[in-house]
Computed example of a mutant assay.
Amino acid sequence: MQGPAVFMDISLEDQALELRKYFKSLGAEIAEEKSPKGIEDDLHKIVGVCDVCFKEPNESEIEAILNSIVSIMVSIPLERGENLILAFSQRLTKAPGPKLGMVVLQSLWRLYNNLEANSPLRYHVYYHVIELAARVGYVKEVFTGVDQLRREFSACTPSNEQMQKLYRLLHQVLKDQNSELASKVMIELLGTYTDENASYAREDAIKCIATALADPTTFLLDPLLDLKPVRFLEGELIHDLLTIFVSEKLSSYQTFYNNHKEFVHSQGLDHEQNVKKMRILSFMQMAETNPELSYDEITSELQIEEKDVEAFIIEVLKTKLVRARMDQAERVVRVSSTMHRTFGRAQWQQLRDVLLAWRSNVHSAHEAMKSVAAAQIEYAAQNQKA
């Protein structure tokens, strides 16, 4: 969304007077005369009745009125700016209907973009922008990711509590639209807790785990175990379930589900989707230690029929977590590479060994090229003497 500055040709005082007259004509309880206390008091009175314009049948008229209010707000130093802008933003979020909501959202977004980058008010306006954008189905146009959010507030630095509140709102509005982004938002939220207050993040941590497990595109889950609030859940069922998805096989999940069906469903998790993800995770684990897997091993370990093996392998390849090819004649799957489900000390050591071997090979190739170059120089010198 774009938020260009709003300019009017008349003075701020005359703008306020015109707005007073307009709202009075719509039946609002506001005097037509200017306030003797100045433009700030005028604006206070106008904001108090600004939602009366929602009854205006002409949407372009509504947009013009709201933009006029915005132009005044961003043009004067407001001693009571926070209260005024909060009141204005809250009233705009009550715009009825998605069509009018879109018009109002544009004005609210203009207000946000015309505030100074270091203004603490940007946070409050942005929060209401997300609320309204969620109502009109426009969140993805406003919020694109946690990196973008950091850039938005790099100059005004909201408090930890404010960011936690915003992350919770974003997770709430994203969880049914973009589960992957919702998971990233929740992980970011959990990262705001410290050792001192991590124990208070229990509800957030549970939501984070449930969202990540439900996301069909999230397979690498072991980083969640390192989050402080998640560590406080150790010993609880949700932590046990996460551990199964991080490092155990399908059979472990089936046992857990048989013993705790009600709990799994209470977390908003779909059993069949869980089984599908656990099959992929189990296959990844099998492929880590065995580059050639027979159809019999796959059907036994993953509890699928042989006729479904090829369709399953195609689904695995779509995730791009595993590279493999099927040999239908030999009834085997040959794995060329696979992503590790967990990345601990053993995987770091393996990566170190690979990099050391690569460095050694590069050195050997470099020395060989030097020898070839020296031989060519010597050969050329001998030919010149001859």
Rank of each mutant, 00 (worst) to 15 (best):
E59G: 15
R151F: 10
D226R: 12
M1S: 03
M326F: 09
Q303E: 09
R345K: 03
M163Q: 08
N258E: 11
E152R: 08
D222E: 07
V146H: 00
E116T: 03
T243N: 14
S300F: 15
D270W: 04
F153A: 06
H271A: 15
D14F: 08
L213V: 02
C50W: 03
D41S: 09
L224W: 03
H128W: 08
A381F: 07
L92H: 01
I238H: 01
V362L: 13
R331A: 15
P57F: 07
Q347G: 06
D9H: 10
P291V: 08
L355R: 10
A182P: 04
K34L: 15
S68R: 12
E248C: 15
E33Q: 12
E367R: 15
L213W: 02
S71K: 04
A375D: 11
K165R: 11
E82M: 14
A87E: 12
D296G: 11
G191C: 06
E18S: 12
D42A: 07
T194D: 09
R202Q: 12
S25P: 03
R151Q: 15
Q90L: 07
N118F: 03
E180M: 12
T342K: 04
E59W: 13
L189T: 01
F88P: 00
D353I: 05
A16W: 07
H366E: 10
D296T: 11
A210N: 02
D42I: 06
A87P: 05
C50T: 06
R135Y: 04
Y123Q: 01
S35T: 06
E188I: 09
L108R: 00
D42N: 07
T299A: 03
L181M: 10
L166R: 05
S154H: 08
N67P: 02
I69F: 00
I130M: 06
Y200V: 13
S371I: 14
R168H: 05
L250V: 10
N197D: 12
M284I: 03
D240N: 15
N83S: 15
V136T: 07
V246R: 02
A380W: 12
E131S: 06
L170I: 06
I206M: 10
Y112I: 00
E188Y: 09
A373K: 09
V129M: 03
W348G: 07
K184R: 12
E330R: 11
S75C: 12
E310H: 09
I280V: 05
H239C: 06
L213R: 02
Y257L: 08
L190E: 05
E79K: 13
S183N: 08
L281S: 02
D14E: 10
L221G: 05
S247R: 06
L169N: 07
A368Y: 06
G145K: 03
V70G: 00
